[in-house]
Amino acid sequence: MPVGPQAVRQAREAVAGRFGDVGVAPGSAFADAVLLVVSELVVNVLRHAAHSPVADVAIMVGAGQLVVSVADAEPCLPALEPGARGAGLRLLAELAAEYDGDVSAEPAVGYDGKVVIVRFRMPS
């Protein structure tokens, strides 16, 4: 999706639109946590990768996990160590931990950029 003023809303709507496909109950606490993660990840693109023309937002389910990833064209990886995280990354880590998940970041494959990944264990 294009990076701009509508990016957060568009990302949230796109992910919420996939909830039925991936087994997430709309309106549940888990759905709210996933949408908050999407919002924070896209806001981080707007703040820290403003020169990135697009953000690639993905949601996947497998092996009992739901994975949200957001890729952008900024190659600088965020500091993920507990003491170095900003408020947004701390929130992401806390939300993921509530569902036995985690936050990671890695260089993008095939272009100069990065992918931030948040994993959740799917609630039963």
Rank of each mutant, 00 (worst) to 15 (best):
S39H: 12
E74L: 07
R12M: 14
L36Q: 15
Q6H: 14
F30L: 11
V67W: 01
G88P: 02
R90T: 15
A25G: 02
P2W: 14
G27P: 12
E94N: 06
V67K: 12
G64W: 12
A50C: 04
A71L: 08
V3N: 15
A55G: 01
V57K: 03
S69L: 03
V38P: 05
L80W: 08
A84N: 07
P123K: 06
A73G: 12
S28F: 11
V57M: 03
D102Q: 10
V42N: 08
M122L: 15
A29L: 11
M60H: 13
G62D: 10
G101Y: 01
P53H: 11
R12S: 14
V38H: 10
P123V: 08
A63R: 14
C76N: 12
V57G: 03
E94Y: 00
G88D: 09
G17I: 06
G23R: 08
L66E: 02
R119E: 10
S39Y: 02
A73E: 13
Q6N: 15
S52Y: 06
D21G: 06
V15E: 02
A31K: 07
I59H: 02
V116F: 00
V109S: 00
A71T: 14
L35Q: 10
P75S: 09
A31P: 08
V37W: 04
G17T: 05
M122V: 13
Y99P: 04
R90Q: 13
R47H: 08
V34R: 01
D100Q: 13
L77K: 11
L77V: 10
A7M: 13
S104L: 03
A50M: 08
G113Y: 04
S124C: 05
L80H: 06
H51R: 15
H48K: 11
A55K: 09
H51K: 13
R121C: 11
R9Q: 15
P5D: 15
G62Y: 03
V61G: 06
Q6Y: 10
E40M: 01
V45Q: 05
A14D: 08
F30W: 11
P75V: 10
Q10L: 15
A25C: 02
V8N: 12
A63M: 07
A31W: 07
G113V: 07
Y111L: 06
A73W: 11
G17Q: 05
N44V: 01
M1I: 07
V3H: 12
S124V: 04
V24I: 15
V15G: 09
R47V: 06
G20R: 14
L89H: 07
A31S: 12
A96W: 04
V15T: 05
A96V: 02
P123E: 04
H51S: 14
V57A: 03
G113R: 03
V54D: 14
A96E: 09
E40V: 03
D112P: 00
V45W: 04
R119V: 06
G83F: 03
A96Y: 03
A7P: 09
K114I: 01
V24E: 00
L66F: 06
G64R: 10
G23C: 10
V43L: 15
R119T: 13
A33C: 10
S124M: 05
A96I: 02
L89N: 04
G23I: 11
M60D: 15
P2R: 15
A108I: 07
A79W: 08
Q10H: 13
P2L: 15
A49F: 09
V118A: 03
D112F: 05
D102N: 09
S69A: 13
